[in-house]
């Protein structure tokens, strides 16, 4: 393992502590008292007596100093306990774990569509610079960057579900259900990747090693797809990491529109019911996933660009 990756792994615990601390702090800013809310739920909505609230506060350890409360919360969290919902009393970690696959599926399919369409379009646009294909894909990129995923989602729903009745507007479980939400969510990533691939590909094609490869007599296909593209993909890989964050956030909104049973719906209902521990758990989970995705992208980057490892070994 290179020194860089070792350092990345070393900072991982620090980042996890930071992320969990911010998530923990969020609940401290929330209005209302956890003990009172819990008692009110248990009593069926009746305002509890002040003595009972004080007793429960003591029992739940809410009077303890902040660092101690954080420590208790984190040690519960790493054991998979994010507390109970203020409303249902159910386990938040359990509900998040149950809903997370749907959100991750939606985000990954959107990413796959974005990569599968955006990268080849960018490559072809760079190869045939100035052609109709180039112009069209640049328009597409402008459009994709400016149209919000929620507007796209509503438009797709209007056209393909309401008017044409080709695809279901809501639902979950069948492959056809994911088409509209995933396409709606993918536009932004697709536009960004297309634009970036075109730019890096143009730069890559003008490098000396491409002229060398051509001078060696390699055929044009090998030159473009193996030599130019591999180098052009490096920045693209980094952007995929940041896009993952946009996709996770965008997925929340798109889930609401399509009734997709992911964490987005859970958190929006949680917000409307002032169920703050739900919001806290949601932030923690998605931030940790985002962190892991970026770590994976970083490793992919090292693998795509051996120079970064070799130069370190030579030094």
């Amino acid at each position: 393992m290179s020194g860089y990756l070792a350092r990345r792994f070393a900072t991982l615990p620090l980042l996890l502590v930071g992320i969990s601390f911010i998530s923990f702090l969020l609940l401290n800013f929330a209005p209302g008292d956890a003990a009172e809310i819990t008692l009110r739920r248990q009593n069926g909505g009746i305002t509890p007596s002040p003595e009972a609230v004080v007793a429960l506060r003591e029992e739940l350890g809410l009077n303890a100093p902040l660092p101690l409360r954080y420590f208790r919360w984190v040690s519960d969290a790493v054991q998979g306990d994010l507390g109970e919902s203020y409303r249902s009393g159910g386990s938040i970690a359990g509900e998040l774990a149950r809903r997370l696959p749907a959100t991750l599926l939606l985000a990954s399919v959107s990413m796959a569509i974005g990569v599968a369409v955006g990268v080849p379009l960018g490559v072809f646009a760079a190869l045939k610079r100035g052609s109709i294909l180039d112009t069209t894909s640049r328009f597409l990129a402008l459009f994709g960057a400016a149209v919000p995923s929620y507007v796209m989602a509503l438009l797709l729903m209007l056209v393909f579900a309401v008017k044409l009745d080709w695809l279901p507007a809501i639902g979950y479980g069948e492959p056809k259900n994911i088409v509209l939400p995933a396409v709606a969510l993918s536009f932004g990533v697709m536009a960004q990747l297309m634009r970036l691939t075109r730019a890096t590909m143009l730069e890559s094609l003008s490098q000396d090693y491409i002229r060398t490869a051509r001078a060696k007599g390699l055929n044009e296909l090998t030159v473009t797809w193996r030599h130019a593209l591999r180098n052009a993909l490096l920045p693209v890989a980094t952007v995929m990491g940041t896009s993952a964050g946009h996709l996770l956030g965008g997925a929340v909104i798109v889930e609401i529109i399509f009734g997709w049973p992911g964490v987005g719906q859970f958190v929006i209902v949680g917000i409307s019911q002032r169920d703050y521990p739900v919001v806290q758990g949601f932030v923690l989970y998605l931030a940790v996933i985002f962190l892991l995705v970026n770590l994976a992208v970083d490793m992919l980057y090292r693998w795509l660009d051996p120079r970064l490892t070799f130069s370190r070994q030579a030094a």
Partner: peptide, 25 residues
């Protein structure tokens, strides 16, 4: 910069939704 790195470690819209949600609409 540690605070900056921490904030950037969150997906921005996710954190935005959470902060706005907890503060109230």
């Amino acid at each position: 910069m540690l605070i900056v790195d921490l904030l950037l470690a969150f997906p921005s819209l996710v954190l935005g939704i959470a902060v706005a949600g907890i503060l109230g609409p």
